[in-house]
Design a protein around this nucleic acid. Sequence first.
DNA 1: GCCAACGTTGGC
DNA 2: GCCAACGTTGGC
Length: 145
Amino acid sequence: MKSEPDVYSIDDLHRDGREMWDSIRNYQARNMMRDDMRIGDEIFFYHSSCKVPAIVGISRVCSEPYPDPVQFDKTSRYFDPKSSKDSPRWILVDVEFVRKFDRAITLTELREQPGLDGMILMRRGNRLSIMPVSDEHWDLILTLE
DNA sequence: GCCAACGTTGGC
DNA sequence: GCCAACGTTGGC
């Protein structure tokens, strides 16, 4: 899961313990939270749109999927007038802090790993803020820490 | 600040 | 249902 550190960083999650992953307005990302995530699933926490884009730690899914309350908040820029409580369009999960890496594993470094070829994160122009990571890639990335 | 790569919107 | 125009993301 990507997050802009200026908006919400791994340190913020460490401080808060857990966080509702709200305001995601992309159908693919929503589908992953709604359909693919299970309580206990571990997540790489990635800092994006910043000086050194990098995987900086691990978080974990800690709720069932449920409707994003922000979609009903008229004062929010993420308010969705086409959504309704009867059939909410945007679904999210809560995530909890697991640990922060001793050092950030930078995108540059990840690109240098031949074993990570084909990772969705590395695709040019990739804009997905939530994406699956294969077991092989997960294990390989952990050896880089 | 630039620009590639998408996703979304809306006219037809 | 197509597709052009536009908006957003995010690395560089």
